[in-house]
Write a protein that binds this DNA or RNA. Structure first.
Lengths: 242, 242
DNA sequence: CGCTGCATTGATGAGTGTCAAAATTGGTGG
DNA sequence: CCACCAATTTTGACACTCATCAATGCAGCG
């Protein structure tokens, strides 16, 4: 069931910087196996010191952080190509949990070998840091959204971000993409209540900008959305993957 | 005016993992100089592709992100030991600006040599990634705060975080530390209005938990603060520095 | 000495949260 | 194929936190 890295599905998508055959061989030595999980399966737990790290090969999930009183914040959405477990690998403890939302296929690595990564193939260490910087950048943008944007702006922003990411991965056809998330996920991502998120999504639908129902997101006018969200529509840079 | 890395002030603080003499020599080759800036001086601009990277040697600052309509979000506070310019170095573009709030001394590196970092001294590349993971972790926590905590909880949380960080760096005497920030900085960090932040700080003062005035923060009951903020008071891990 | 930035306080109202319930969907088993 | 149940979405009414507006005080400074 485990495919050789040579046939890694990520290496074929043009959202990613392609790996050289040598790099592929190197990664192959790293790979311990593949993991296939059902929707809503926990992958890594906040506070855990997991021995395994992952790269999402297909499917979608969420990163979420739980507070002492049971509230949660959705930190980010997980797409194919995302590395999962950076904090466990480096800090020895995850700052958030990761949970699948659709069925997912994950590439599994051994945490204990992360260091050999840096030592023997520094470009790959560099790539990992690149991903960390990208994530940091995104979290800063999210923070600005939750802290400064209104509900309407926030939801518009979220729809754009999800859509753009999906588009870069070939998950969009005719301005439509599958979304396995619930409205509660988005609400917790934007720091809004479920009810208000629902009503805000309704507004976007009324204005014929974006329609999300039946696990399907349709974007009708992304420029108008971007206007509302006060954001640019820059294409995503090619990213490395681990 | 430029001190040799051998005398780096950071290497003497026990908040940090100490560098070996060889590492110090290596870093010395890297170092281009030192920069001393006055309060409110911009250090790196959002969107810029700066040729220089920094490590804060002393003083404090902020990371901030500007939106199209002029609002801003304070992403994080900058303390000695913080690396500045990761995103410029790796992504080629800063996602936020960095500005001094007190007088600051900065260690200056050449961005173009960042890669040799990873190649010739992979442990140092590893350390840089460690810092990136730590920052990512903190941003996730901030996001949870802005998204989920109430104003009182948020402000209590911020005071704790700043105080803990200051304490680990020896900036606290008798539960008192200097804070060069304005209330507007904190308000923009927590996604609150200036007025409400002021009133919330007043509440903490009334309850005799924390007093911040005249650029001085005094923490009277950190356990009670932690209770309000729904957070633990774990000691900070020893961190590397670049 | 007036100017500017920052802190402080009170009054008012908008944007969201909370509560409650109905509608819809999807899954499960008889 | 239908009945039932759980999860999710949707809608309306109401409450409240927090933003906004406005004015004052205060300190630093040219």
């Amino acid at each position: 069931m485990t495919t050789h890295c040579r046939y890694c599905p990520l290496n074929r998508k043009d959202a990613f910087k392609h790996l050289s055959p040598e790099d592929i061989e190197f990664m192959q030595k790293f790979k311990v196996g593949e993991l296939s999980v059902e929707p809503n399966t926990p992958i890594l737990m906040q506070g855990s010191n997991a021995p395994q790290l992952f790269t999402a090969l297909s499917g979608m999930g969420i990163r979420e952080r739980h507070l002492q009183n049971g509230q949660r914040q959705v930190i980010n959405f997980v797409f194919p190509g995302d590395f999962i477990g950076l904090q466990a690998g480096l800090l020895g403890e995850m700052g958030h949990s990761v949970e699948a939302r659709s069925q997912m296929r994950l590439c599994v690595f051994n945490r204990s070998e992360l260091w050999s990564f840096f030592r023997s193939h520094p470009e790959r260490g560099f790539d990992l840091t690149w991903l960390a910087a990208m994530e940091e950048n995104f979290l800063g943008e999210s923070l600005s959204t939750v802290g400064q944007r209104t509900a309407l702006q926030s939801v518009a922003w979220a729809m754009i971000k999800i859509f753009q990411r999906g588009k870069s991965l070939g998950m969009v056809q005719n301005n439509v993409m599958e979304l396995p998330f619930t409205q509660r996920d988005v609400a917790d991502a934007m720091g809004l209540s479920l009810v208000h998120t629902n009503k805000t999504l309704g507004k976007l639908k009324d204005r014929q900008l974006a329609t999300w129902s039946d696990k399907t997101l349709q974007i009708n006018d992304i420029e108008a959305l971007a206007e509302i969200a006060m954001t640019d529509l820059d294409p995503l840079p090619k990213r490395p993957f681990i």
